[in-house]
Structure formats: structure tokens, C-alpha cells
Simulated scan of single mutants.
Amino acid sequence: MNRREFLQCAAVMVSGMTASQLGLALSDAQRAHLATAPNYNAGKASYLSAAQRRILAAACETIIPRSDTPGAIDAGVPNFIELMVSDWFNATERAIFDAGMIDLETRIPQQYGMAFDRLTAPAQRDILEALESAASDHPWYEFGNVQRDFISDAPFICQLKELTIWGFFTSERGAKEVLRYNPMPMQFDGHLPLSPNDSTWAGVVES
């Protein structure tokens, strides 16, 4: 499976929708991958430094914090992101990610007097919101659905948010403890009513 197919599969898995709903025809190899893929979060990452791992973990947890449901750290998202950057990013994407991590690692201590991961949760949130505000005119914010490819020139904050969401909702804990999980739905009902408090379903089903 190549990089494009992997990212396409990840988009389908996160959407909680069927391939037919997305207008997306999955190949036999892609279907086999979705059915048998190992826990990618469990792989050993070795791309970032220890300090960068702490920063990344804090940033992910700011995006999906622990509450009455698991947070990004609980679901193994920081490790997932590190693996994605090292194994699947192209040179352009990796350079943007590296620059973003260096910015958090060097600028924040100069500005706040301590590392990003040691700041209070509100301060961490303010920093990420400032990054998002600065990037808000990028086409990444116009995608509107999951049928696009991964945008290679997306700013660091966009990469961070997208990978955090992918990593969380494709993890076992995200799927089973946040989404509603039924490993054998047996059928697809495109008109199943949802209440305002209902989450989407985990996994991919076919009509």
C-alpha cells in the first residue's frame, strides 16, 4: 500500500462512513488493510527528541484533553503522530512539521520563560489558537469533507490538528470509548436517527 492509499484509508476510517457514501471506491488491497491493519499506535517511534515528545504530547492533549473520556495521550496519539511524520510524510510536509516543533521548542521558552509542556493548560491553548489564527486563510480550512488528499503545504497547526484527530479516532480507545462501537453491524442503515448527544459510529461498514 502506498502513501496515498494509506491516507485515503485513514480518512475513511475517521469519517465513520461507508465507501459508497464518500463516493470513494476502495481497492481490494485497501479493504484488506482496513480489515487486518495492526495497531499503528503501538509501533516504536524514534524521530523526535525527548523534549520534543513532551511538547508534542502537551499539544495533542490540548486539542483532545482528557475529561470523562480519554484524552489524546491516553489514546497514544503523540506516538502515532511521530510515526506518521517519520514513515508517511513527504519532504515538504516533514519540513513544515519540523519547523513547527522547533518554533514551539525555542520560541515559547523565550517568550514565556518555560517550555511549552510546563505551561498551564490555558496558556498552551492560547498558543495553539494564535497559531491557528495566523494560518486561518490557508485552503486547508476550506476542505469541507474527507474526500481530499492530505494537503502537503498545510501549516504546522493544521498538520497537528488533523493528525491528532486521525490518531485519536483510529485508536482502540477513541473508537470504543468515544465513538459507538459495533464490530459486527451486519447491515448499513443510512437513515438511522441520531440525537444531539449521539456520537458517530467507529469503523467502516458497507451497504
Rank of each mutant, 00 (worst) to 15 (best):
N2F: 14
N2P: 13
N2K: 08
R3W: 08
R3V: 12
R4D: 15
R4H: 15
F6S: 12
L7Q: 07
A10C: 15
A11P: 05
V12T: 06
G16V: 07
M17D: 08
T18R: 02
Q21H: 03
Q21F: 02
A25W: 09
L26F: 01
L26M: 04
D28L: 07
A29K: 09
A29Y: 07
A29N: 13
R31M: 06
R31N: 07
A32G: 12
H33C: 12
L34F: 02
A42W: 11
A42V: 10
Y47K: 02
Y47A: 08
A50N: 13
A51Y: 12
R53D: 11
R53N: 14
L56W: 08
A57P: 07
A59P: 10
C60G: 06
E61H: 11
I63F: 04
I64Q: 08
T69H: 10
P70T: 02
I73Q: 14
A75M: 09
N79T: 15
N79R: 11
N79V: 14
F80Y: 15
D87P: 06
W88H: 14
W88G: 09
F89W: 04
N90F: 02
A91W: 06
E93N: 05
E93R: 00
R94K: 08
F97S: 02
F97T: 01
F97D: 04
F97E: 07
G100T: 03
I102Y: 08
I102W: 05
I102D: 13
D103N: 06
E105N: 01
E105D: 04
T106V: 11
I108L: 00
P109A: 00
Q110M: 05
Q110W: 00
Q111R: 01
Y112L: 00
Y112W: 02
A115L: 03
R118F: 05
L119V: 00
L119T: 00
T120P: 13
P122S: 09
R125M: 11
D126M: 12
I127K: 03
L128C: 05
E129V: 14
E129R: 13
A135F: 07
Y141N: 00
E142Y: 07
N145M: 06
F150K: 08
F150D: 12
C158Q: 02
Q159W: 12
L160Q: 03
L160E: 04
L160N: 02
L160W: 07
L160I: 03
L160C: 01
K161C: 09
K161F: 14
E162N: 12
I165T: 06
W166I: 15
F168W: 11
F169Q: 06
T170S: 09
T170A: 09
T170P: 04
S171V: 08
R173F: 12
G174C: 08
A175Q: 09
K176M: 06
E177F: 04
V178W: 10
L179A: 12
R180Y: 10
Y181L: 06
P183G: 06
P183N: 01
D189Q: 03
D189G: 04
H191N: 10
L192K: 13
L192E: 15
P193Y: 00
S195T: 15
P196R: 00
P196S: 00
N197A: 12
S199M: 11
S199E: 14
W201Q: 11
G203Y: 03
G203E: 06
G203N: 01
